[in-house]
């Protein structure tokens, strides 16, 4: 039973992280109908930035709390800057191109960013500094739930609540929802669609950066390639929940996290990544609209 609870908790933690990345996919898809392939790389850049900042600060002897805050903010700022720039370079000129063009451009961007980080930094695995201390009150259940699991869960929940608030009640959130519904109509009523798209990329990237930092300190090491697998898994989660739907992305992520955790725990850990891919293929075959998504009808 302990083993079951342990797997359940690690599944929820995984799911929470996937959710942070999947939200970026789903928001961008909702607004411009593009699978932002480079989103996994944004997450990786977030992890790298927080790694660099945290290590530099810890070398210069700053206190732990300051390191966490500065590294988190730096990761979010730079990832957002990357997300913003990528959209301007690779997607904006292609907004009216055939559907395949922005997708190919996104794949190119993803490969470019991976190799950019590889060349600018290193191809080795880097040890991520331990940012989350072991809490004393977690001691009795530490063998089942770690402190970092708890931190990840709390952070994710807080971020989700803020995001829901932003989308539901602020001006930019309203503009985003309007643009997602009908871009032309949103333009007609005076919404600056370019700004809305930029804002979407910035918010999505910041979420991915926070996810990157959390998972890097949870796992304890990073390299330039982590964005690829994480990106595909988060995409799987977004599709599972119904792409374009924000609660769907969270639900899909939790389902995926639990599936992976139980499958690796009870079946085989060699095929960890295969389960996610197999799940993706299965959903797309049987229910392409996802758990909470709406069916899309094609019109001529």
């Amino acid at each position: 039973m302990d083993y079951f609870i342990e797997l359940f908790c690690s599944g929820i933690t995984r799911g929470a992280i996937y959710a942070l990345i999947a939200l970026g996919y789903t928001m961008v898809y909702g607004i411009i109908g593009l699978i932002n392939f480079a989103h996994g790389e944004i997450y990786m850049i977030g992890a790298f930035t927080s790694f660099i900042v945290a290590t530099v600060l810890s070398i210069y002897g700053f206190p732990l709390l300051a390191i966490i805050v500065v590294a988190g903010v730096a990761a979010a700022v730079w990832s957002s800057a990357y997300g913003f720039t990528i959209e301007k370079i690779a997607y904006k000129p292609l907004r009216h191109a055939p559907r395949l063009s922005p997708l190919i451009s996104a794949i190119g961007m993803s490969i470019f960013l991976q190799n950019y980080v590889l060349l600018a930094q290193t191809s080795d695995f880097l040890p991520f500094p331990e940012l989350i201390p072991d809490f004393a009150f977690m001691e009795p259940i530490a063998h089942i739930v770690g402190s970092s699991d708890l931190v990840i869960l709390i952070t994710t929940t807080v971020v989700m609540i803020i995001l829901t608030f932003v989308i539901k009640f602020t001006r930019i959130g309203k503009a985003m929802r309007a643009t997602a519904q009908d871009r032309t109509m949103a333009m007609l009523v005076g919404i600056n669609v370019n700004n809305v798209i930029s804002a979407t990329f910035i918010i999505g990237s910041a979420l991915a950066a926070i996810g990157g930092m959390l998972i890097a300190s949870h796992i304890g090491q990073i390299n330039f390639y982590i964005g690829f697998i994480a990106g595909i898994k988060a995409f799987t989660a977004a599709v599972l929940g119904g792409i374009g739907s924000i609660p769907g992305a969270v639900l899909g992520s939790l389902v995926l996290g639990l599936t992976e955790s139980f499958a690796t725990g009870y079946v085989s850990s060699d095929y960890e990544d295969v389960f996610a891919f197999a799940l993706l293929v299965l959903i797309l075959i049987f229910k392409p609209s996802g758990l909470l998504g709406k069916d899309e009808t094609q019109k001529v």
Partner: peptide, 28 residues
């Protein structure tokens, strides 16, 4: 057979997943 009824961008991801599955199976 199963994936070709998907729209272009989904197809891209599923084929990518398939490619990785084949590689992972060969590896493991």
């Amino acid at each position: 057979f199963p994936v070709l009824r998907l729209r272009g961008d989904y197809l891209a991801i599923v084929t990518l997943g398939f490619g990785e599955i084949i590689r992972l199976i060969l590896e493991n």
